[in-house]
């Protein structure tokens, strides 16, 4: 069993850490995992993304053309990745930053205003946790408790004051269920 997630957005939206959080969690629950960022010139000013592959066996390619799930945190990311989500997969859309509807009808679309949700929680920086929560609420990827544990373990001391807000953001995002978990 293998699942792949691409998380994409502007630099500064916490895209790379969101991916690392999934990778840490996958490792802690004993899965094989790869995390690879887009490290090219597109990082400067444009979109940043990372690919996380989680598997029960030795992982072949860390690069994936048609991932199980995509989190699009801004419009360029939706434009780039919408058509690539595997049929039946999950597409999480941050509607705060995206002003167009999703065209695909063969995938599960989870659209939520992640920026506003994070701001309402009093932690605008936890927008990445809101969308990760939304992914976990709609895709049977990793147990929420394990993600929480990994988040705590990998939040540096100087950021510990954000931990509570981040955990709340994960749960708030997970409340956005579109249907049964994929």
């Amino acid at each position: 069993m293998q699942q792949e997630v691409i998380i994409a957005g502007f630099g500064g939206q916490g895209v790379l850490f969101a991916g690392r959080l999934l990778a840490y969690t996958a490792m802690e629950v004993g899965k094989a995992v790869t995390w690879i960022p887009s490290y090219g010139p597109e990082m400067r000013g444009g979109t940043a993304n990372c690919t996380v592959v989680i598997s029960d066996e030795e992982i072949g390619s860390p690069f994936v053309k048609n991932p199980t799930a995509v989190i699009a945190m801004n419009k360029p990311s939706l434009d780039k990745f919408e058509q690539l989500v595997a049929p039946g997969g999950v597409l999480v859309v941050n509607s705060s930053m995206i002003d167009r509807p999703v065209e695909r009808t063969d995938i599960h679309v989870v659209s939520l205003p992640a920026n506003e949700i994070a701001e309402a929680l009093g932690s605008s920086r936890s927008v990445n946790m809101v969308v990760v929560g939304a992914l976990l609420g709609n895709l049977d990827l990793l147990p929420m408790e394990a993600v929480e544990k990994a988040l705590e373990a990998h939040t540096p001391e100087r950021h510990k004051r954000f931990l509570k807000g981040n955990v709340e953001a994960l749960h708030k995002g997970a409340e956005h269920r579109v249907a049964e978990k994929v």
């Binding site: 690392r20 990778a23 490792m27 995992v33 995390w35 690879i36 490290y39 992982i59 860390p62």
Partner: peptide, 10 residues
């Protein structure tokens, strides 16, 4: 290659 340098794995 660059991807093994940049990739994270356990």
């Amino acid at each position: 290659d660059g991807s093994i340098g940049q990739m994270m794995e356990p």
